[in-house]
Design a protein around this nucleic acid. Sequence first.
RNA 1: GGUCCUGUGGCCGAGUGGCUAGGCAGAGCUCUGCAAAAGCUUCCACACCAGUUCGAAUCUGGUCGGGACCUCCA
Length: 499
Amino acid sequence: MSLKIYNSLTRQKEEFIPLNKGYAGMYVCGPTVSGESHLGHARPYITFDIVYRYLLHLGYKVRYVRNITDAGHFEEEGRAAEDKISNKAILEKLEPMELVQKYTNMFHWAMKQFNNIEPSIEPTATGHIVEQITMIEKIIADGYAYVNNGSVYFDVHKYNEDFSKKGMPYGILSGRNLEEQIETTRELDNQDEKRNKADFALWKNAPPEHIMRWKSPWGEGFPGWHIECSAMATKYLGAQFDIHGGGMDLQFPHHECEIAQSNVCNHIAPVRYWMHNNMITINGRKMGKSYNNVIKLSELFTGSHPMLEQAYHPMTIRFFILQSHYRSTLDFGNEALQASEKAFKRLWEAYENLLKIEVGNWQATDAELDEKINKQITEFTTFIEDDFSTAKVLANMFEIVPVINGIKNKQVALNTISSNTITLMQQQFKLYIENILGLQYEEENSEKLSGILQLLVDIRKQAKAQKDFVTSDTIRNELLRLGVQLKDEKDGTVTWSFV
RNA sequence: GGUCCUGUGGCCGAGUGGCUAGGCAGAGCUCUGCAAAAGCUUCCACACCAGUUCGAAUCUGGUCGGGACCUCCA
């Protein structure tokens, strides 16, 4: 078997063959830390976490680079405006790094909640101004950029002309034709510093009130939107690297510009496999600031948003995202999230029960079922290698869940399937659920709490024995109200889980 | 307007031309003091119209609907 990845550039699934045997380089566009992350942001980071985890599982030495965009326009309610007028005290001024720190911390916190593995390198744009300036100088030297009034712009037309001949026209990734674009945007002629509408900024001259500014050969200013990714990807992954990921909405112009910049500087197409995740929608519409339909992650985790019927655990979100394919849109809804919540709980409990089965050595009495389960488990790999079809992996797991629960409740005889199959199930469920899909479930379990619960369970048991159902039901119902669900097992024991 | 994607049962979603994905919700049954949990069974589907094909949710054309990008955007 081999890993197949859908390459946005070629628009087809391709076998993943790394540039350097045994090594994989992956760059994913990270967050702009000028605000809090929302549900939509969760998708790429969870999606590429799966990619990262799977590459690691395959034994690759992976360098996963995910940037933090901390340069640009920064403002926070109330403070940005103040900043321009009042320069009296340092503390009154908006300190950009303060915001950057705040939202970076929040981002990291959210990533941890989702159980995403930290990238190998998390470079910041402000930490790589020198590299960006060097890259811009190269582009100018090669004649693909021009300086105007302290700003530098990339000459898209010249690039397109020259690189079309090399089979890499501007628009190759997003499937756009530069000529057509000009047709459609002719009316809005360029009244600014750009020679052409399609040109994009590599460096921008900072107006006096702009807080973040750096010295450059062209005067004080700040880097353009696209150059940071090219500079940092080149620095840490090389002129050409394996995988570049990001949201579909970044395909144009961001990734298109990256390709152009890197092509000019490094004389090679920067990325071998472009991966783009689709959007999370809300009522069928992309979640985004401009649509005013954003649900922030902190709101999601606490349920503090008018559109939320309840709080949702980060793992519920992760599970929700994994239940769809990353290249499909995924529609948010309370009903859908509640479904994911229950489904995940069901899967996890079955998984725990599976691990508890003690394996000996026996043959299957139901060879057909045994074979079916073996096939379904083998397919975990088939599916994940087919462009990371996590939804199908989960579907197969759910097909097996009734068998596990059946064994646990003695509704299915243990030797229905062979001991070898059970061992395989235990190994593969653990591998996929925990390592590859990155799901986890931490129970609030202290000795003290278990002791108290066990006491209640015992009292209830006594009450039941005396047919004092008022007492026993009170214990059961009140515990449920507090979020503890008691389960009367077949063999008379009582277990509990937190809901 | 241009480019592209998409339309699956109450909801979310997989779907490689033939073999009912899966989850949640609903119904019935088993178990239970009653429940819950669990198991078993079950209802509900491929926007519409034509075409290709022995056979189409899956391919082609058209109609209608939804969306993304074209400006910062995950």
